[in-house]
């Protein structure tokens, strides 16, 4: 069973531990600006919403990449940017309808969540279990994917099943 990040904004206190853990894990600095997970603050409601990549099946980023730099990790299901191959063209950043691939101007490459190879630092750092790493079929991901499907242009792998055997 593949696991995925489950996010429960009701439990988020906005402490930003996840952002710092992410930045430290992936960039070696406690600078939230480098984090792949972001906490958004709804001031009026006093609400915090953690937000990152859902590792969606459609993988717009992966399909849009012109140089084959985004690949799927077969173990975790994460869509991972190969830094050495990424040229920094940013096409994936506009193709992802969730806006979870970002361009890092200092490295000239794009960055996105890679699930830390199956041991996500954000989930470990979260003191309130607002971010947990659980079996994929548990999460709100399906709903998110349903929403994402509206952006679909008939190009998902799910849609790509032959409806009738086309003759030879």
């Amino acid at each position: 069973m593949q696991k995925s990040l489950n996010i429960d904004p009701n439990k988020c206190t906005g402490c930003l531990q996840c952002e710092m853990a992410c930045a430290y894990e992936l960039e070696g600095s406690f600078n939230p600006a480098h984090s792949r997970i972001k906490i958004f603050h709804f001031e009026e409601q006093g609400r915090f919403v953690p937000y990152t990549c859902t590792q969606c099946a459609e993988a717009w980023c992966l399909h849009a990449c012109p140089v084959d730099a985004i690949k799927m990790d077969a173990t975790t299901g994460a869509k991972v940017v190969d830094e050495a191959t990424c040229v920094g063209c940013k096409v994936c950043t506009i193709a992802c309808p969730f806006g979870t691939v970002n361009y890092n101007q200092s490295s000239g490459k794009v960055i996105k969540c890679d699930l830390c190879g199956g041991d996500p630092a954000c989930a470990k750092a979260c003191p309130t279990e607002a971010i947990t790493y659980v079996d994929a079929n548990w999460t709100g991901l399906d709903k998110m994917r349903e929403w994402a499907a509206k952006t679909d242009t008939g190009t998902t792998t799910a849609a790509a099943k032959p409806s009738a055997p086309a003759g030879h």
Partner: peptide, 30 residues
Amino acid sequence: QPTATEHGRIAAQNMAGVQTPHPGSLNMNV
């Protein structure tokens, strides 16, 4: 580029006998 890859996928599906209409590509540039 994004439209070219969408076109390629949809055309191939149709060529393979998987009837797939193209709902339209969004024009976008970065």
